[in-house]
Simulated assay, not measured.
Amino acid sequence: MYDDDDYSGSATTVLPGSSSSTGFDDDDDSFGSAFDEPARKTHTWHGGLDFGLLVLRLVLGGLFVVHGLDKLFGWFTDLGMDNTQRMLEGFGFTEPTILAWVLAVSETAGGVLLVLGLFTPAGAAAVLGVMANVIVVKGDWNTFLGGVELEMMYAAAAFTLLFTGPGRVAIDRNTHWCRKTPIYGFVFLVLTAGACVVTLLVFR
């Protein structure tokens, strides 16, 4: 995925029946060098992309680690598992105890994986799944954008990482799922959509 040798600035292959001629006689110098243009180079992967993806992973993953730990242990806002269960009950879920653990572990584990750039499709899918459920149950569509703009941004960031991969500053760098990011991204997107549907239809 990141092999710069896969990108080339060489001229495009001429199709059968077409001509590479510019329409001007190369031996005619009357036009000077006005028509001499350098070959266009294709876009290549560069360090700025790696840095941007690293920042995105650290911020998104770090935020979800904090939220997950707060649900598990109440370290930051005294939320804890009991309050998480009551919150899920308020949203109409029928198995708040089970779902509270699923939610807390998904946020914590997903965040850690994103920070490390390890099993990135799974980490991004976990975050995306949590946010998709939150948007559905929390959104008030009688208000502007449902009042869930922040959740939409979280979901968009996770979706982005699902299809871009973690960049080269990651443990996943040389893995198969990193080299074939779009394929794995699509697979985990389908799995996430299925999990969201089951959660909303079966447990609510």
Rank of each mutant, 00 (worst) to 15 (best):
D3L: 03
D5R: 15
D6Q: 12
D6T: 09
Y7T: 12
G9C: 15
S10C: 08
V14Q: 12
P16S: 11
S18M: 15
S21F: 08
S21Y: 08
T22C: 14
F24V: 15
F24Q: 14
D26T: 13
D28L: 12
F31K: 13
G32E: 12
S33Q: 12
A34N: 14
D36K: 14
P38R: 13
R40I: 12
R40V: 11
K41S: 10
T42S: 07
H43T: 12
T44F: 01
T44L: 02
W45V: 04
H46E: 14
H46N: 13
H46K: 11
L49Y: 09
D50Y: 02
L53F: 00
L54N: 03
L54G: 10
L56H: 04
L56W: 03
R57I: 13
L58T: 03
L58E: 01
V59T: 12
L60I: 10
G62C: 03
F64R: 00
V65N: 02
G68F: 04
G68W: 03
K71Y: 00
L72W: 11
F73C: 06
G74P: 00
W75T: 09
T77W: 04
T77S: 07
D78C: 05
M81T: 09
R86G: 07
R86Q: 13
R86I: 11
F91M: 11
F93T: 02
T94D: 06
E95M: 08
P96H: 04
T97N: 06
T97V: 10
T97D: 09
L99K: 00
A100F: 02
V102G: 01
A104H: 04
V105Y: 01
E107C: 05
E107T: 01
T108D: 02
T108F: 01
T108K: 02
A109S: 14
V112S: 02
L113Q: 04
V115D: 01
L116Q: 03
G117F: 02
G117M: 04
L118W: 06
L118F: 12
L118H: 02
A124Q: 05
G129Q: 07
G129I: 07
M131Y: 03
D140L: 07
D140M: 08
W141Y: 11
N142C: 05
F144L: 14
G147M: 13
L150S: 10
M153G: 10
A156S: 10
A157V: 10
A158W: 00
A158T: 01
T160G: 09
L162A: 05
T164F: 03
T164Q: 02
G165Y: 00
P166H: 05
G167I: 04
V169C: 02
V169D: 01
V169A: 06
I171F: 10
D172E: 06
R173Q: 11
N174M: 11
T175V: 13
H176M: 15
W177R: 07
C178D: 10
C178P: 01
K180H: 14
T181N: 11
I183R: 08
Y184A: 06
Y184R: 06
G185D: 04
L189K: 00
L189R: 00
L191T: 07
A193V: 15
G194V: 09
A195C: 08
V197C: 08
V198H: 05
V202A: 14
V202H: 13
V202L: 14
F203A: 08
F203R: 08
R204C: 10
R204N: 13
